[in-house]
Amino acid sequence: MTSASGLDLAAQRYISNPEIDITLKLALELNRPILVEGPAGTGKTSVAISIAQALDWKLFRIQCYEGITFENVIGEFDYKRQLLHIEFERQKQASAPSRNLEDIFSRKFFIERPLFLSFIENDPNVLLIDEIDKSDEEFEAFLLEALGERQITIPELGTFQASNEKQIVILTSNSSRDLSEPLRRRCLFLYIDFPTLARERRILAVHTGRNFDEPLIQSIAGIVHQIRQYDLRKVPSIAETIDWAKALILLGKEFIDEPTLKETITILLKYQEDINRIDHQLKEIIRLGTT
């Protein structure tokens, strides 16, 4: 089933919502990057991967981290190769002195990395810049040129304009740091929150092969929704909900009672203090989650 964006993300096992579909449609039409924000584990990275699969476009991924630099995403000159080349040329010149040294700052000596590759790629592609908030401010500033003008400047090689007409750039962020205004201004904004009950049931159904109106699937989604209401250090993500559903199916459970929830709660909650916080309220959580 195709959505407003014209893409069948469900076929890639990604259950979208109207907000995602419309933002995607605009990104395709207006050729603008999308900045996706939201809590961890709500499907920000998966949306980019699913788009690439649905369109059958190549995916380039940049995983940001503290200290990521220009060289890590654009590329760098191969220092060893340059040295070897100089040494080789020197020996050659000894026998044939007229020969000139080839320019060692050419593409031949340049190790190309994902951002550069995605720009020079002739075919349409998806560029995923994951967890941009983990990178430093300098890196964010460097991206402005690439996102705004769709070009990259490498001082030794010149300016490279994106050679493809169609490219979807998706930046994801968990908001661990506030991103700069200029970067935000260049992007369409999409906030993916935890899914609604109905959407989560559909997600579980797709990933477990069950029907979304089965009592077990309904209970799982309902209970996880109840748990998310608590002020926890880490609330269960969609991936953890899927894992929990798969575990319950594997254990042959058809309904969830207090002992079952107690035994399997570690799949959902990853901090002991979170487990302690809801430990005495499991009965109430099950009651509210299953009604």
Partner: peptide, 11 residues
Amino acid sequence: LGLRASIVKKR
């Protein structure tokens, strides 16, 4: 939803 994606930049 379309205008929201284009205009709003913060949650």
